[in-house]
Design a protein around this nucleic acid. Sequence first.
DNA 1: CTGAAAGCGCTTACAG
DNA 2: CTGAAAGCGCTTACAG
Lengths: 355, 355
Amino acid sequence: MTDSPPSGTRRVTLSQVAERAGVSRSAVSFVMNGRTDQRLSADVFERVRRAAEELGYRPNQTAKTLRTGRSGTIALVSDFVSSTSYANAMVRGAMRALRERDILLFTVDTEGDPQVEERLLHSLFGRDIDGVIYTSMFTRIVDPPPLLASTRTVLLNCRARGGDDVAVVPDEVEAGREAARLLVAAGHTDGIWFVGDLPPGRRGGLLWNEWGPLALPERLEGIERELASSGLSLAGHVAVDDDWDAPNGQRAVERLLEDGARPSALICVNDAVAAGAYRALHAAEWRIPDDVSVIGFDGSPLAGMLEPSLTSISLPHEDLGRRAATLLLSDDATPRVERVRMPVHLGASVGSPTR
Amino acid sequence: MTDSPPSGTRRVTLSQVAERAGVSRSAVSFVMNGRTDQRLSADVFERVRRAAEELGYRPNQTAKTLRTGRSGTIALVSDFVSSTSYANAMVRGAMRALRERDILLFTVDTEGDPQVEERLLHSLFGRDIDGVIYTSMFTRIVDPPPLLASTRTVLLNCRARGGDDVAVVPDEVEAGREAARLLVAAGHTDGIWFVGDLPPGRRGGLLWNEWGPLALPERLEGIERELASSGLSLAGHVAVDDDWDAPNGQRAVERLLEDGARPSALICVNDAVAAGAYRALHAAEWRIPDDVSVIGFDGSPLAGMLEPSLTSISLPHEDLGRRAATLLLSDDATPRVERVRMPVHLGASVGSPTR
DNA sequence: CTGAAAGCGCTTACAG
DNA sequence: CTGAAAGCGCTTACAG
C-alpha cells in the first residue's frame, strides 16, 4: 500500500480510485461531486474519499468539460484592462470573487482591434468558457460583439448601446454630485469652475474621445444638478486643448487666470488635470486650499502625491470587477445597469472660500 | 445548401464537416491540422477546407486537449502581478507574445499565500495547461513550488534559489552601472551619494523586504563597480527609515542636508524616493540639476511628472514578459538566467556639477 | 491514398 | 443501492 501518489508517472484517474476503493466509477464520480441524491452508503462515501486522498486524485477538468460543457473558466475580455495599469484593479476584484469558487480566469486584451477580438473570442469559445466579462479601460458605451450572444456576459465599466445586457459601471453622476456637495458644504457659492471640457467642435482625435467616454458628461451632469438643487450654478467652464493630462490642465487654468477669473474652487475632470491646475495655481501664487479649492476625479495614486493632497472622487475599480464577476456567476441575468458608488478620497485641497 | 452555420443550434463538429465533404473524420482532422505528411489529395484538401468554412467549423479545443494532453493555454502565476499596477506591463508583454500563436493566458495572483498558490496550481494542472510563467512583482529570489516540476516553467522577474531553471530578470547590475556612467560622463566625481539603503539591522517588516528584493543590492553593486572603474567611489549612503516611498526619501535627504553634506548628485534607489528627494531639495532651495543632479530607478510614470523630469533607469516590464513567454514556448529549456537591459529614461535632472 | 476503431477521463441515464 | 455502457469531440496508430 502506497500512501503517496506514485511519482514520476501519469496522473491518477477516477478509474484507479474506483479500483482502490472497490466500487464502480459511477460511485466515485458521485462522491467526488458530492451528489448525495444517489443515496450512497456512508461506508462507500468514506472508502472513496480515502482512496482519492491516498492516491492524490485530482479530477481532470478537461474531461469533465468535454462531458458537461462547463469548464469552470471565464474570460475577461477588454481593450487594455489587463495589460495596462489604469483600470487594472478591476482584474483584482474579479479574481478575488472567483478565487472562492475554483473558477479560473482567462485574460485577453484586444488593444481595440475588432479582428483580434473576434479571433480571441472564437479561441475562448473553443475552450468552452462559461462566461465573459466584457470590459473597457474607460467607462463608455460599447457595441458588444455579436459573438457574445452565445455566452453568459456581463459588461464591466461599459454599457451596451442597445441596453439589454447586465452592466456594471461607476456611478459618475452621483460622483459629480458628491464633488459639488463637498464644495457647497465648505461654503462655496458663485466661484466654482469646471476644468476639462473638450474644446468646442472636438470630435475624435483622441483615442478615448472617439470612444466617447462617459466620465465627462456624467460628472458634469451630477455637478450641475447638485448645484442647481442648492440654487447655484457653475461660474463657468474651461476646456482643455487636447487631452486630460497635467500639461493640458495647467494650460487651461493658466488661461482662466489670465482671463481675470477669480475662482473660489476648481472641479477638474480628473486627477491629472487637477495636477496641472496645481502647477498653474502655484505659479500664479494662489494657495490651495486657502485661496482656491481643488477637486479631482479618479482617486489615482497621483492624488495622494500632490501637495496638498488632492480630494478626489475615486473610480472603484476593484469593486466594479468584483461585482461583475459575482453577477456573472449568479443565475440572475435580468438586463440592468448597476451603478457602483464612487467613494470620496479625502485630501487637503478643499477649504472654505475666503473671498 | 446552407452557406452560413445553422443558427441557434449546437456547434459544428468534425463529423459534420467529414459528412459534408464526403470524406472520413481522419481526413478532416489531417486537413485541419495541416498534416501534409498524410499525402491527402489536393481535391480532398480543398473539399474539406470548403466544407469547414461553409459550416463555420471551429475545432473543439477541449476535445483536442483531452486527446493530446496539450491545451494551448499557459498560466501566469504570481503574487500580485496581474492584479496590481506596478509590474503589470509584464502581462502585456506575455500576452503580445502569445497572441500570434493562438495560446490563451490564465492569470492568477496568489497574493503571497502559499496555500492559495497550491490550490490554484492544482486547478491549473487539472486543465492541462502547457506551461507556467512564474513571476513576482518585485525582482527577487524565490523557491518555486515543487508542484511546478511537472510543467514547463519560466521564472519571470525572479530567480530560483537552486538555480536550475530558466529565468528572465532585469539587468539591475548593469542599470546601476548606467546610472553611475551618466553622472561620471556629466563630470561628477566626489559628491555622489546613494539614497535608499535599508536602515542597519533592518530585516523583515516590510512585506517586500522579507522577500529580499534584488533591486537594492544589485543596483548598488553596479554603481560601485562603475565608479571604481573610473577610480571613484560613492561619497556616502543615506538610509530610509522604512520604505522606498516619497516621504521616506524626503526625510532621508533632509537628514543628509542637515548633516551638512554637499552632494553633487543623488542616486536614489527608485523614483518614489527620488520624488521625496526633490521635495527635500526644493525646500532647502537646491536647484535640480543646477545645484544637484538626481537619478532614479524604475522608469515609473512619476518620473515624467516631476519637475524637472527625472532621469530614471527603467524596469523593462513589457520586454521581460514578452521574453519569458517566448522562452516558455521555445523548446530550449536549458537552465539559465537571462538579463534584460534596463533602458535609460532620460529626463532633465542630470547636469554638470557646478561646485 | 482512405476509413473503421480505440481511447483520452470523465458524467449520467438506465437496467438491474 | 450498484455497475455496465454510451458518449462528449477529437487524434492517431492500424489495417486495408
